[in-house]
Design a protein around this nucleic acid. Structure first.
Lengths: 123, 123
DNA sequence: CCTCTGTTATAGAAATGTTATAACAGAGGT
DNA sequence: ACCTCTGTTATAACATTTCTATAACAGAGG
Protein backbone atom coordinates (compact mmCIF):
# COMPACT_ATOMS: atom_id res chain seq x y z
CA UNK A 1 0.00 0.00 0.00
CA UNK A 2 1.12 3.47 -0.82
CA UNK A 3 1.42 5.52 2.33
CA UNK A 4 1.23 9.21 1.70
CA UNK A 5 2.65 11.54 4.29
CA UNK A 6 2.41 15.30 3.97
CA UNK A 7 5.34 16.90 5.70
CA UNK A 8 3.72 20.31 5.39
CA UNK A 9 0.54 19.22 7.13
CA UNK A 10 -0.10 20.45 10.64
CA UNK A 11 -1.21 16.95 11.55
CA UNK A 12 1.39 14.95 13.44
CA UNK A 13 3.26 12.40 11.32
CA UNK A 14 2.29 9.46 13.51
CA UNK A 15 -1.38 10.46 13.25
CA UNK A 16 -1.21 10.78 9.47
CA UNK A 17 0.32 7.33 9.39
CA UNK A 18 -2.40 5.98 11.70
CA UNK A 19 -5.08 7.46 9.49
CA UNK A 20 -3.56 6.05 6.31
CA UNK A 21 -3.53 2.61 7.82
CA UNK A 22 -7.14 2.93 8.96
CA UNK A 23 -7.95 4.02 5.40
CA UNK A 24 -6.17 0.91 4.17
CA UNK A 25 -8.16 -1.34 6.47
CA UNK A 26 -11.45 0.32 5.57
CA UNK A 27 -10.81 0.08 1.83
CA UNK A 28 -9.71 -3.53 2.13
CA UNK A 29 -6.12 -2.85 1.14
CA UNK A 30 -5.20 -4.43 4.43
CA UNK A 31 -7.05 -7.55 5.51
CA UNK A 32 -7.41 -9.25 8.84
CA UNK A 33 -4.18 -11.11 9.50
CA UNK A 34 -2.02 -9.07 7.14
CA UNK A 35 1.36 -8.10 8.52
CA UNK A 36 2.32 -4.45 8.35
CA UNK A 37 5.90 -3.57 7.41
CA UNK A 38 8.31 -3.58 10.32
CA UNK A 39 8.83 -0.25 12.05
CA UNK A 40 12.29 0.04 10.56
CA UNK A 41 11.27 -0.88 7.03
CA UNK A 42 8.31 1.47 6.93
CA UNK A 43 10.33 4.25 8.51
CA UNK A 44 12.93 3.90 5.78
CA UNK A 45 10.32 3.77 3.01
CA UNK A 46 8.59 6.91 4.20
CA UNK A 47 11.76 8.62 5.27
CA UNK A 48 10.88 9.16 8.90
CA UNK A 49 12.16 7.86 12.17
CA UNK A 50 11.52 4.37 13.45
CA UNK A 51 10.04 5.72 16.66
CA UNK A 52 7.45 7.73 14.82
CA UNK A 53 6.23 4.59 13.09
CA UNK A 54 6.35 2.76 16.38
CA UNK A 55 4.13 5.40 17.93
CA UNK A 56 1.60 5.04 15.13
CA UNK A 57 1.56 1.27 15.65
CA UNK A 58 1.17 1.73 19.41
CA UNK A 59 -1.82 4.00 18.91
CA UNK A 60 -3.36 1.53 16.47
CA UNK A 61 -2.83 -1.25 18.97
CA UNK A 62 -4.38 0.70 21.82
CA UNK A 63 -7.35 1.49 19.58
CA UNK A 64 -7.79 -2.12 18.61
CA UNK A 65 -6.82 -2.08 14.94
CA UNK A 66 -3.69 -4.24 15.12
CA UNK A 67 -2.09 -6.73 17.43
CA UNK A 68 1.62 -6.49 17.84
CA UNK A 69 3.47 -9.76 17.97
CA UNK A 70 7.07 -9.51 19.02
CA UNK A 71 8.18 -11.97 16.41
CA UNK A 72 5.82 -11.28 13.52
CA UNK A 73 5.38 -7.57 13.87
CA UNK A 74 2.14 -5.60 13.63
CA UNK A 75 -0.76 -7.70 12.40
CA UNK A 76 -4.10 -6.33 11.32
CA UNK A 77 -6.61 -7.53 13.87
CA UNK A 78 -9.69 -5.40 14.29
CA UNK A 79 -11.05 -5.59 17.79
CA UNK A 80 -14.61 -6.81 18.16
CA UNK A 81 -15.51 -4.79 21.23
CA UNK A 82 -18.36 -3.27 19.32
CA UNK A 83 -20.06 -1.61 22.26
CA UNK A 84 -16.90 0.33 22.97
CA UNK A 85 -16.46 1.23 19.32
CA UNK A 86 -19.98 2.56 19.18
CA UNK A 87 -19.35 4.71 22.24
CA UNK A 88 -16.15 6.04 20.74
CA UNK A 89 -17.71 6.85 17.39
CA UNK A 90 -20.69 8.45 19.11
CA UNK A 91 -18.30 10.78 20.91
CA UNK A 92 -16.67 11.93 17.71
CA UNK A 93 -20.06 12.35 16.06
CA UNK A 94 -21.31 14.47 18.96
CA UNK A 95 -18.77 17.21 18.28
CA UNK A 96 -19.55 17.07 14.59
CA UNK A 97 -23.28 17.35 15.21
CA UNK A 98 -22.78 20.39 17.44
CA UNK A 99 -20.78 22.13 14.74
CA UNK A 100 -23.40 21.17 12.19
CA UNK A 101 -26.20 22.59 14.31
CA UNK A 102 -24.32 25.88 14.67
CA UNK A 103 -23.97 26.01 10.91
CA UNK A 104 -27.61 25.23 10.20
CA UNK A 105 -26.69 21.91 8.71
CA UNK A 106 -29.67 19.63 9.16
CA UNK A 107 -29.83 16.06 10.30
CA UNK A 108 -30.92 15.11 6.80
CA UNK A 109 -27.89 16.79 5.28
CA UNK A 110 -25.61 14.85 7.60
CA UNK A 111 -27.36 11.63 6.59
CA UNK A 112 -26.84 12.46 2.95
CA UNK A 113 -23.17 13.28 3.54
CA UNK A 114 -22.63 9.93 5.18
CA UNK A 115 -24.34 8.14 2.31
CA UNK A 116 -22.22 10.08 -0.15
CA UNK A 117 -19.02 9.17 1.66
CA UNK A 118 -19.99 5.50 1.69
CA UNK A 119 -20.67 5.70 -2.05
CA UNK A 120 -17.46 7.58 -2.68
CA UNK A 121 -15.43 4.75 -1.19
CA UNK A 122 -17.57 2.12 -2.79
CA UNK A 123 -18.80 0.57 0.46
CA UNK B 1 -22.97 30.06 30.76
CA UNK B 2 -20.97 27.65 32.79
CA UNK B 3 -17.70 26.87 31.08
CA UNK B 4 -16.19 23.63 32.23
CA UNK B 5 -12.50 23.09 31.72
CA UNK B 6 -10.80 19.83 32.60
CA UNK B 7 -7.21 20.50 33.54
CA UNK B 8 -6.45 16.79 33.47
CA UNK B 9 -7.69 16.36 29.92
CA UNK B 10 -5.14 15.83 27.20
CA UNK B 11 -7.07 18.27 25.07
CA UNK B 12 -5.54 21.74 24.89
CA UNK B 13 -7.23 24.33 27.10
CA UNK B 14 -7.98 26.69 24.23
CA UNK B 15 -9.62 23.85 22.30
CA UNK B 16 -11.75 22.81 25.27
CA UNK B 17 -12.84 26.41 25.56
CA UNK B 18 -13.60 26.58 21.84
CA UNK B 19 -15.68 23.41 22.08
CA UNK B 20 -17.62 24.65 25.08
CA UNK B 21 -18.52 27.82 23.25
CA UNK B 22 -19.61 25.87 20.18
CA UNK B 23 -21.72 23.74 22.53
CA UNK B 24 -23.22 26.93 23.90
CA UNK B 25 -24.08 28.22 20.45
CA UNK B 26 -25.57 24.90 19.37
CA UNK B 27 -27.71 24.59 22.49
CA UNK B 28 -28.88 28.17 22.21
CA UNK B 29 -27.15 29.30 25.38
CA UNK B 30 -25.41 31.83 23.19
CA UNK B 31 -27.46 33.61 20.56
CA UNK B 32 -26.47 35.55 17.49
CA UNK B 33 -25.29 38.96 18.67
CA UNK B 34 -24.50 37.90 22.22
CA UNK B 35 -21.25 39.24 23.59
CA UNK B 36 -18.84 36.78 25.11
CA UNK B 37 -16.98 37.76 28.28
CA UNK B 38 -13.81 39.73 27.68
CA UNK B 39 -10.61 37.71 27.44
CA UNK B 40 -9.49 39.00 30.82
CA UNK B 41 -12.79 38.36 32.57
CA UNK B 42 -13.18 34.85 31.24
CA UNK B 43 -9.55 34.05 31.95
CA UNK B 44 -10.05 35.11 35.57
CA UNK B 45 -13.28 33.17 35.91
CA UNK B 46 -11.78 29.97 34.60
CA UNK B 47 -8.41 30.54 36.20
CA UNK B 48 -6.33 30.47 33.05
CA UNK B 49 -4.25 32.98 31.18
CA UNK B 50 -5.69 35.77 29.08
CA UNK B 51 -3.73 34.61 26.04
CA UNK B 52 -5.25 31.16 26.18
CA UNK B 53 -8.72 32.66 26.01
CA UNK B 54 -7.57 34.97 23.27
CA UNK B 55 -6.37 31.98 21.26
CA UNK B 56 -9.74 30.28 21.64
CA UNK B 57 -11.49 33.45 20.43
CA UNK B 58 -9.08 33.73 17.51
CA UNK B 59 -9.79 30.17 16.45
CA UNK B 60 -13.54 30.76 16.73
CA UNK B 61 -13.18 33.89 14.64
CA UNK B 62 -11.16 32.13 11.95
CA UNK B 63 -13.77 29.37 11.89
CA UNK B 64 -16.60 31.84 11.54
CA UNK B 65 -18.35 31.48 14.88
CA UNK B 66 -17.71 34.95 16.29
CA UNK B 67 -16.74 38.35 15.09
CA UNK B 68 -14.33 40.24 17.21
CA UNK B 69 -15.06 43.92 17.61
CA UNK B 70 -12.33 45.92 19.22
CA UNK B 71 -14.73 47.92 21.31
CA UNK B 72 -17.43 45.37 22.10
CA UNK B 73 -15.38 42.22 22.32
CA UNK B 74 -16.21 38.82 20.85
CA UNK B 75 -19.72 38.71 19.44
CA UNK B 76 -21.49 35.53 18.39
CA UNK B 77 -21.90 35.74 14.64
CA UNK B 78 -22.15 32.47 12.82
CA UNK B 79 -20.78 32.67 9.31
CA UNK B 80 -23.16 31.84 6.50
CA UNK B 81 -20.62 30.41 4.08
CA UNK B 82 -22.59 27.21 4.00
CA UNK B 83 -20.77 25.59 1.11
CA UNK B 84 -17.52 25.87 3.02
CA UNK B 85 -19.10 24.56 6.19
CA UNK B 86 -20.43 21.56 4.33
CA UNK B 87 -16.99 20.81 2.96
CA UNK B 88 -15.47 21.12 6.39
CA UNK B 89 -18.02 18.87 8.05
CA UNK B 90 -17.71 16.36 5.24
CA UNK B 91 -13.99 16.13 5.93
CA UNK B 92 -14.52 15.35 9.58
CA UNK B 93 -17.22 12.83 8.73
CA UNK B 94 -14.94 11.06 6.25
CA UNK B 95 -12.51 10.04 8.98
CA UNK B 96 -15.37 8.93 11.17
CA UNK B 97 -16.89 6.84 8.40
CA UNK B 98 -13.56 5.11 7.74
CA UNK B 99 -13.25 4.19 11.40
CA UNK B 100 -16.84 3.02 11.41
CA UNK B 101 -16.28 0.79 8.38
CA UNK B 102 -13.25 -0.80 10.04
CA UNK B 103 -15.38 -1.51 13.07
CA UNK B 104 -18.25 -3.00 11.12
CA UNK B 105 -20.48 -0.11 12.05
CA UNK B 106 -23.06 0.24 9.31
CA UNK B 107 -24.34 3.31 7.56
CA UNK B 108 -27.67 2.75 9.27
CA UNK B 109 -26.07 2.66 12.68
CA UNK B 110 -24.36 5.97 11.98
CA UNK B 111 -27.69 7.44 10.92
CA UNK B 112 -29.27 6.25 14.13
CA UNK B 113 -26.43 7.67 16.19
CA UNK B 114 -26.87 11.06 14.60
CA UNK B 115 -30.60 10.96 15.24
CA UNK B 116 -29.96 9.96 18.84
CA UNK B 117 -27.51 12.82 19.34
CA UNK B 118 -30.00 15.28 17.90
CA UNK B 119 -32.65 13.95 20.27
CA UNK B 120 -30.26 14.00 23.20
CA UNK B 121 -29.70 17.72 22.76
CA UNK B 122 -33.34 18.37 22.01
CA UNK B 123 -32.77 19.67 18.49
C1' DC C 1 25.31 -17.67 15.43
C1' DC C 2 23.17 -14.23 12.65
C1' DT C 3 19.22 -11.62 11.63
C1' DC C 4 14.85 -10.25 12.00
C1' DT C 5 11.08 -8.65 15.15
C1' DG C 6 9.23 -4.95 18.78
C1' DT C 7 10.76 -2.59 22.98
C1' DT C 8 13.25 0.39 26.01
C1' DA C 9 16.36 3.99 27.38
C1' DT C 10 18.55 8.33 26.55
C1' DA C 11 19.33 12.57 24.45
C1' DG C 12 18.50 16.56 21.78
C1' DA C 13 16.02 19.73 18.50
C1' DA C 14 11.88 21.86 17.16
C1' DA C 15 7.20 23.11 17.61
C1' DT C 16 3.24 23.92 20.47
C1' DG C 17 0.74 25.21 24.63
C1' DT C 18 0.54 28.01 28.66
C1' DT C 19 1.75 31.54 31.66
C1' DA C 20 3.54 36.16 32.85
C1' DT C 21 4.33 41.28 32.19
C1' DA C 22 3.85 45.09 29.76
C1' DA C 23 2.40 48.29 26.58
C1' DC C 24 -0.62 50.14 22.77
C1' DA C 25 -4.84 51.96 20.22
C1' DG C 26 -9.71 52.57 20.02
C1' DA C 27 -14.12 53.52 22.09
C1' DG C 28 -17.27 54.77 25.96
C1' DG C 29 -18.43 56.97 30.30
C1' DT C 30 -17.47 60.44 33.68
C1' DA D 1 -9.28 65.72 29.72
C1' DC D 2 -9.35 61.45 32.26
C1' DC D 3 -10.31 56.80 33.43
C1' DT D 4 -11.61 52.32 32.18
C1' DC D 5 -12.93 48.96 29.35
C1' DT D 6 -12.07 46.41 24.89
C1' DG D 7 -8.73 43.37 21.75
C1' DT D 8 -3.98 43.30 20.16
C1' DT D 9 0.95 42.96 20.14
C1' DA D 10 5.51 42.03 21.84
C1' DT D 11 8.58 39.67 24.82
C1' DA D 12 10.11 36.12 27.71
C1' DA D 13 10.08 31.87 30.10
C1' DC D 14 8.68 27.22 30.93
C1' DA D 15 6.42 22.57 30.11
C1' DT D 16 4.86 19.34 26.99
C1' DT D 17 4.68 17.14 22.66
C1' DT D 18 6.66 15.69 18.38
C1' DC D 19 10.34 13.97 15.86
C1' DT D 20 14.92 12.47 15.30
C1' DA D 21 19.21 9.93 16.55
C1' DT D 22 21.91 6.13 18.80
C1' DA D 23 22.15 2.33 21.22
C1' DA D 24 21.09 -1.70 23.44
C1' DC D 25 17.96 -5.65 24.85
C1' DA D 26 15.03 -9.98 24.53
C1' DG D 27 12.59 -13.26 21.83
C1' DA D 28 12.00 -16.10 17.75
C1' DG D 29 13.56 -18.20 13.37
C1' DG D 30 16.81 -19.65 9.76
Amino acid sequence: MLIEIDFNSDEALYLQLRNQIILGIATNTFHEGDVLPSVRTLADEIGINMHTVNKAYSVLRSEGYVKVDRRRGAVISVSEAKEEHLRQIRNILSSTVLEAVCRNVSKEELHKMIDDIYKEYGF
